[in-house]
């Protein structure tokens, strides 16, 4: 592990200014000399493995702004401070009641210990677990731009079938992000040049030719909060996560679903898919298919087919297209049958 300078700024503006001072303007946050650290469950891991190599860590945990640690419920929705821990949000009674899909996505992630450390902002910014990315002796365009992609023709069982490119097929593994995607969340960020709001759907970038560019954030921008709009019918929502073992594993496929039902008919459906795509994935086509239709196994299957119409399987992940469809069908039917 390389030596690094460790700083604990207390003001958001100072933290952003420090980041700005030690990084170049066009640096990606994940490649910058100065990087933010929250729970450290992702970044410290990658530093030990030599994947992330910041010279300077700016620890966000001493930031004074109390809003960073609060969950605020209002008529407009719910606002999560960036430093709220996964475990706390998962257990919050209003979250559980009003947005079960959020509570589920957090509860089914990682382990109790990690959920107590990991922050919500860190969670949505977690980096891929691609085996070839994690180990520095392999060729990886995301880690070293232009070096190639060892996963493309390698062992790619966990890799993405949606949103991949010729340069990178790494999956975005987070769970929480799928719930935020489905619920049209907004991310608040503050950088040296001011604050802005980013629609959650715009936060992550598909790999394209530049898989090392992972988000829309600049290296000096700190996520301060995540806001989820009030959606009364989101009580009928859930997160279904399919994995090789019962707990403590990333999704092979997952679905975040929220339904506004009129009897059996679908007024509005919100669907995001996890473990299958390079970024948090909104299944807009599947939503359209369902709109105004009765929800049954048949219509759910048509919606699932639509969601995967553009799927591109590779050698070892070919099953994920079928698994993804079935996950979505099951999630839709289970959401329909929820007692709310």
């Amino acid at each position: 592990m390389r030596p690094f300078v460790y700083e604990q700024p207390t003001e958001i503006s100072t933290a952003a200014a420090m980041a700005s001072r030690f990084t170049r303007r066009d640096d990606q946050p994940t490649r910058a000399n100065a990087q933010f650290i929250a729970g450290g469950t992702n970044l410290a891991d990658y530093m030990k493995l030599g994947v992330a190599q910041p010279d300077r860590l700016l620890d966000l945990n001493r930031l004074a702004d109390p809003g960073l640690r609060q969950i605020r419920v209002t008529d407009d929705g719910i606002r999560f401070g960036a430093l709220v821990r996964m475990g706390e949000a998962a257990d919050h009674p209003d979250v559980k009641r009003r947005y079960p899909v959020i509570a589920d996505s957090l509860k089914l992630a990682a382990s109790g210990q990690i959920r107590n450390m990991a922050s919500l902002a860190g969670n949505i910014l977690q980096r891929t677990r691609c085996e070839y990315f994690r180990e520095t002796s392999w060729a990886c365009n995301k880690r070293v731009p232009g070096s190639g992609c060892a996963a493309m023709e390698g062992f790619n069982r966990q890799h993405a079938v949606l949103g991949a490119s010729d340069a990178c097929i790494a999956t975005y593994h987070g769970d929480f992000a799928q719930a935020l995607m489905a619920l049209d969340a907004i991310v608040h960020a503050e950088g040296a040049r001011g604050a802005r709001n980013i629609p959650f759907a715009k936060l992550h970038r598909q790999p394209g030719d530049t898989p090392h560019i992972e988000t829309d954030l600049a290296a000096d921008e700190i996520i301060t909060a995540i806001e989820v709009p009030a959606i009364p019918w989101a009580r009928r929502s859930l997160y279904l996560k399919i994995r090789d073992r019962e707990s403590y594993a990333f999704a092979l496929a997952s679905a975040a679903v929220a339904l506004d039902l009129d009897g059996d008919g679908v007024r509005e459906a919100r669907i995001a898919l996890g473990g299958l795509a390079t970024v948090p994935w909104r299944a807009g086509k599947a939503e359209e298919v369902l709109q105004g239709k009765p929800l049954d196994e048949h219509s759910a299957t048509i919606a699932a087919d639509a969601a995967f119409a553009d799927a591109v399987p590779r050698q070892h992940n070919a099953f994920k297209t079928e698994l993804g469809k079935r996950t979505l069908v099951r999630a839709l039917l289970e959401t329909r049958d929820m007692k709310v």
């Binding site: 677990r129 073992r245 707990s247 403590y248």
Partner: peptide
């Protein structure tokens, strides 16, 4: 992470 063994829940 990727070499899976059963966990308690299994």
């Amino acid at each position: 992470q990727d070499y899976l063994v059963p966990v308690n829940a299994d």
